[in-house]
Design a protein around this nucleic acid. Structure first.
Length: 477
RNA sequence: GGCGGGUUGGCGGAGAGGUUACGCAGCGGAUUGCAAAUCCGUGUAGACCGGUUCGAUUCCGGUACCCGCCUCCA
């Protein structure tokens, strides 16, 4: 079987991947805080780890892989949004407003991530549904001397965990010297972090041994990962920005609470996304959500393709030029696989590329070669190659809705098929009559409306391009 | 200050210590009524300075510049 290698942040090395249990390969990826629409940067880890999920499913079997991605629905940004609505005159209790906000954000997230061609993980736990497990874990940590309660807070005692900082390559002393730590009077050590914090009356809270309060950010992942995947599991993923402090703290909590396990064996971090060479930020005016792009007419698949064209370990630069090129490539590939059946035998060299630390860029390179092979083949061989090509694309989550020909769907949607047929017939007639002036005029107007016209041995073939404008076509009646 | 990523031909972007990456664009050709699409061919790349080596863009050291994280952030 194909062997996977993955770069493990924990060891900073590319290592052969050996699942703890090949019959149940387990991965956990940090999901979104559900206070607003997912931005483009949020989409990168989702797409990257979706490809990993697909690869694992392909190699180990769909029923032998468990993928967990959480929703963080306890957070001060969520509280602030709910409070804003309350201040705006909504009379309902805050709890209800929060639930409404998180519910609607999760629905958006599902829609947007589906539009990008991502599979839904096997479990999508919400933090609020695991408060009991978090409280139990915190109590356990206190019992073991790794945490302490003070003034309604519970803090993790960083000095009690020797390996703290190993994942991110930092030492506690260096970080304190670096001085960017919050000093709070109730902390034994400035690096200690919050496991539990008190909530006043107008904040969401749960009863606990330390009074009414809410969990700190990091504990949820430790609690949910343990509940759903056990004390040891295979892969933990997320953005590189989470490496510290979030993942470092997760490790500390989980390792101390469950010393019998090893928590995550392999840690994977994707690099950040940039936009036209700059950090995406509201202040630079280049901030946009996935939904913004979709609404601007970028197909989800194009966004996905651009994301996969850069290796996950490198900064990814989103540019319109890349999107344009991706659109062109995908249009061609779609044309190649039009009406093809999907084979279940993907090309091995692409599987190999993905198995080599998820080298999606190399996988795409190899797909180009396969595309050419389809193009140059004919008859049954072409049919077979097209089927395998389509089956290979599935590993990248591309082409899943091409099966019946999106082209046909679009034409039907615009109710232009009949009109197109008529115009095509007119072109055929003009050609048959060798009336080149008329033929050229018809062709030019079709091209102007965004219809690609291809004249070959067996007549006129037309393909709708992304620039297709039904209004212009109507004008040709 | 600490930690990390990057620097490859016009643009994007990989692998490999020595033999063509690949894609887009460009150029030449085939094909075509003309086109489009496609196919074939075509690129004096590897920030800079040292080192290791028979040989480095690839390994090692240093320099410069760009980006990010260390505070909520994927």
């Amino acid at each position: 079987m194909t062997k996977i290698t993955l770069t493990n942040s924990k060891t900073r090395q590319k290592e052969p991947f050996e699942p703890i249990d090949p019959n149940n390969v387990r991965m956990y990826v940090c999901g979104p805080t559900v206070y607003d629409r997912a931005h483009l940067g949020n989409a990168r880890p989702v797409i990257v780890f979706d490809v990993l999920y697909r690869l694992l499913r392909h190699l180990y079997g769909g029923e032998h892989v468990t993928y967990v991605r959480n929703f963080t629905d306890v957070d001060d940004k969520i509280n602030a949004e709910a409070q804003r609505r309350k201040d705006a005159g909504d009379a309902r209790p805050l709890e209800e407003l929060i639930r409404e906000r998180t519910d609607e954000t999760i629905a958006w997230y599902h829609a947007d991530m589906a539009a990008l061609g991502n599979l839904v993980p096997d479990h999508e736990p919400r933090a609020t549904e695991y408060i009991g497990q978090m409280i139990a874990m915190i109590s356990d940590l206190i019992g073991k001397g790794h945490a302490y309660a003070k003034k309604g807070h519970v803090l993790f005692r960083v000095r009690s965990y020797e390996a703290y900082g190993a994942l991110s390559g930092r030492s506690v002393d260096d970080m304190i010297a670096g001085a960017r730590v919050e000093v709070a009077p109730f902390k034994e050590d400035p690096m200690d972090f919050v496991l539990w914090k008190p909530s006043d009356a107008d904040l969401p809270g749960w009863d606990s041994p330390w009074g009414r309060g809410r969990p700190g950010w990091h504990i949820e992942c430790s609690a949910m990962a343990h509940e759903l995947l056990g004390a040891s599991f295979d892969i933990h993923g997320g953005g590189i920005d989470l490496q510290f402090p979030h993942h470092e703290n997760e490790i500390a909590q989980s390792a101390c609470a469950h010393p019998e396990g090893e928590f995550a064996r392999v840690w994977m971090h994707n690099e950040m996304l940039q936009v036209e060479g700059r950090k995406m930020s509201k202040s630079l005016g280049n901030f946009f959500t996935v939904r913004d792009l979709l609404d601007q007419g970028f197909p989800g698949e194009v966004i996905r393709f651009v994301m996969l064209s850069t290796h996950y370990s490198k900064p990814m630069d989103w540019t319109e030029a890349k999107a344009k090129a991706a659109r062109k490539t995908l249009a061609h590939w779609q044309e190649l696989t039009d009406k093809a059946e999907r084979s279940r035998r993907p090309h091995l060299d692409v599987v190999d590329a993905l198995s080599d630390d998820l080298n999606t860029s190399l996988a795409i390179t190899r797909l180009h070669a396969h595309a050419r092979a389809v193009e140059t083949a004919s008859g049954n061989e072409r049919k077979e190659l097209a089927a395998r090509f389509l089956g290979t694309l599935e590993l990248l989550g591309i082409g899943e809705d091409w099966r019946d020909g999106v082209r046909i769907a679009i034409e039907a949607a615009f109710e232009t098929t009949a009109l197109l047929d008529r115009l095509t017939q007119r072109l055929e007639d003009a050609r048959a009559a060798k009336d080149w002036v008329r033929a050229d005029a018809i062709k030019a107007s079709l091209v102007d409306a965004g219809v690609q016209v291809m004249i070959g041995q067996d007549g006129v073939k037309r393909v709708l391009t992304p620039d297709f404008d039904p209004a212009k076509l109507e004008a040709l009646k």
